[in-house]
Design a protein around this nucleic acid. Sequence first.
DNA 1: TTCCTGCTTT
DNA 2: AAAGCCGGAA
Length: 382
Amino acid sequence: MPFSLAVLRVPLLSFSSPAKNLRMSRTRLSSRSLPSEAQNPNPELNPGSDGSDGIAGLGIRGYAGKKRVKRMIEINAENPEGEARDQKIDHLPDIEEFAYNKAKATKTSSKVKLASALPVGMDKRTDLSIVPKVEPPTNWEEVLEGIKKMRSSEEAPVDSKGCEKAGILLPPKERRFAVLVSSLLSSQTKDAVTHGAVQRLTEKGLLDADAIVKTDEASMASLIYPVGFYLRKAHYIKKVAEICLEKYDGDIPSSLDELLALPGIGPKMAHLVMNVGWNNVQGICVDTHVHRICNRLGWVSRPGTRKKTLTPEETRVSLQTWLPKDEWVLINPLLVGFGQTICTPLRPRCGICGINKLCPSAFMETASPSSKAKKSSPIKRS
DNA sequence: TTCCTGCTTT
DNA sequence: AAAGCCGGAA
């Protein structure tokens, strides 16, 4: 085991000011050289582990600015392969190979039913061949390139503190669990806050299912505070840990449906975990940023119409009908970072945006997105 | 006010 | 479809 599993019982604290009790001994994780495929229990599920960290690292390597590369090299200082890995940037693993290779999961949960009842025509969300072929948006490649350029010149929170980065120095199984917990914590929470919470859990060895079930909910809540909805999430984390321990031998589920069946795990997190946790691309991870930006760009629409999509799930399905699968994984960190720094939800910085000439929504949003922008859809405009 | 890499329940 | 969860920051 890479770190001590000693369970620290944290006294129940009042939540009025829990933060001050959170700082304790800062035992640094042993960042020794890590085995990759050597300890990978499911090598067939991790074809990306060619000595690299697979897709999980792409969020880091793909759009790394100089600062970040430097930081990664620092982090990997004790890892002999570290620097070498950082050189191999912008290399896409062959995700086609294992995109459709997963066996069907048990579909017993109500959530699964909900998921497949979503506005699709593509049940099981894997077989795109039955979806009517949609013409890709004009200039989409140029737009994508422009965004990539902007992303490489400015560092975004997601680059250093996103879920993709969670547990990057851990062995596969621990890393997967870290990605799952990190995702769970990330919703409605700034990356820096999520990162801090994960850090505290890591220091206490609480990214391990076995350790989590032995920790009471209040302690968990105080540790992850102040992430959004921390009480609920503390509850979910414990439930998830119990399920993982019982059904998956302490590992996380390896199929989309089984992930969706976990409490507190919805489509956004499930796809993220599949993508960066299992290197198994079943769909695009669409969060609020991807949802917003795709609509601003006119990249997605309600089926058969030119109206904006109403939900992230609708966006995901629409985007998947035309975006080449090569881009499915990278589109998330790309647009999330873009959304954090430039194409912000409120008052997007169109003035400094390198693709404002190509964006149908550029300089259009004077009021809040909910009030005005809703009526004048970017793709409907003449 | 609106948002933060949402999900669950009504 | 909409409310509720959580609290803080811009």
